[in-house]
Simulated assay, not measured.
Amino acid sequence: MIAVVLILLVIGLVVLYSTSAYNGSVKFHDPFYYLKKQGFATLLGLLGMMFVAGIDYRRWSVLAVPGYLTAIALSVAVMLFGDEYNGSKRWLSLGPVSFQPSEFAKVAVILFLACLVSRYAGKIGKFKYLVLMMLPVLPIVALVGASNLSTAIIILGIAVVLVFVASPKYSQFIWMGSAGVAFMAIFLAMESYRLERIAIWRNPENYEKGYQTLQGLYAIGSGGLFGRGLGNSVQKLGFVPEAQNDMIFSIICEELGLVGAGIIILLFLLLIWRLFVIATRAPDLKGALIASGAMAHMMIQVILNIAVVTNTIPNTGITLPFISYGGTSILFLLLEMGLVLSVSSRTE
């Protein structure tokens, strides 16, 4: 698992520099601008991962409730005092440092639900307790979803997977899934811009906002089997907006081709498999749930990002783990991996 994470980090930094050098030169007169910030966050995250991995994961249980309440408080703060960027209010600034509380919320939800579900595992077979396990997650999903629908979907998906892992019955998840679909339909209909995204997804060439999607598809198509070569992308030269963020997979396809993109997908599959193995060998249910939560997070986020870039689903603005630019994302992802390593090192 450590090997796969480190390989993804190295690939991420190399691809990020290749993708962001042009934007860095144009906006900040420094081609290394994005790489330096991402490199610092990665180093900080690796140190945090080693620190968290060295502590017994059971000792973090005392921080589960305070961590979850902090995530709610930060989400409220984003709504009231958050910084808006590209039409989305997702960031909080503390002096020169800005971060996304929604990234912290993912880790907080995994730890909180792992403790909660393991405590009431014997009763979770009853539908009433199943609903009670999901209720505490809804406030954070609603708060995050107000400005960041994709992250809210990830958090809700993590919660469903954790409850599913602990539940002895599967039939009741059919009702939960039906309720989820109905909720999503109402949620999408509440705001006209969400319905507009669906229209753009179906016919991106008919809308000005479909420009990013089309340019990303041009990048993917022009890459062919082996790509143009690392650093030789044309679409990153201002055609794909913010190419180093959500759309970085399209530049990977253009520069490294289907083969390079396939290798990166294979690395993610290996990481997800290792997280699954650690979950099945965990010494207790709490450890299994922590590893399962990290597995669900990785799986959902990778699938959503690649699906958005290839226009398989409507554009939701979601990063590719370990590769897309984002200091907060890389930091909390590595802390999450540290929690899983703590579970793995205590497996008998």
Rank of each mutant, 00 (worst) to 15 (best):
M1Y: 13
M1D: 09
I2A: 09
A3D: 06
A3H: 12
V4P: 01
V5R: 04
V10E: 05
I11W: 09
G12K: 12
L13M: 15
S18N: 07
T19E: 11
T19W: 10
S25Q: 15
H29Q: 11
P31M: 10
Q38W: 06
F40T: 15
L46H: 10
L47A: 15
M50F: 12
F51W: 13
Y57D: 09
A64F: 03
A71T: 08
V76M: 05
M79H: 07
L80K: 14
E84C: 01
R90D: 00
L92Y: 04
S93H: 06
S93Q: 05
L94Q: 05
V97C: 00
F104P: 03
F104Y: 13
A105I: 09
I110C: 07
L111F: 13
L113W: 01
V117W: 02
A121S: 15
K123R: 15
K123P: 01
K126T: 06
V131A: 10
V131D: 05
V131P: 04
V131G: 07
L132D: 01
M134S: 03
P136G: 08
P136K: 05
P139M: 12
A142E: 05
A146S: 13
S147M: 12
A152L: 00
A152M: 01
I155K: 06
G157K: 09
I158K: 03
V163C: 14
F164Y: 15
S167K: 08
S167W: 07
Y170L: 13
S171W: 14
S171I: 15
F173E: 12
W175R: 10
L188G: 03
E191Y: 11
P204E: 07
E205A: 12
N206C: 01
Y211N: 13
Q212T: 12
Y218S: 11
A219L: 10
A219G: 08
F226D: 00
N232M: 04
S233N: 09
G238C: 07
V240R: 02
V240Q: 00
V240W: 04
M247G: 02
I252W: 06
I252A: 04
C253K: 11
E254W: 04
L256K: 03
G257A: 07
A261H: 05
G262A: 14
G262C: 03
L266A: 15
L267W: 09
L269W: 09
L271S: 03
R274Y: 02
V277L: 11
A282Q: 07
A282N: 04
G287L: 03
A288L: 01
A294V: 15
M295R: 09
M295S: 11
A296V: 04
A296G: 05
I300K: 02
L304E: 06
L304S: 06
T310E: 07
I313C: 12
N315V: 14
Y325N: 12
G326E: 02
T328F: 00
S329G: 11
L331D: 02
F332I: 13
L333A: 13
G338C: 10
G338N: 07
V340G: 06
V343F: 08
S344W: 15
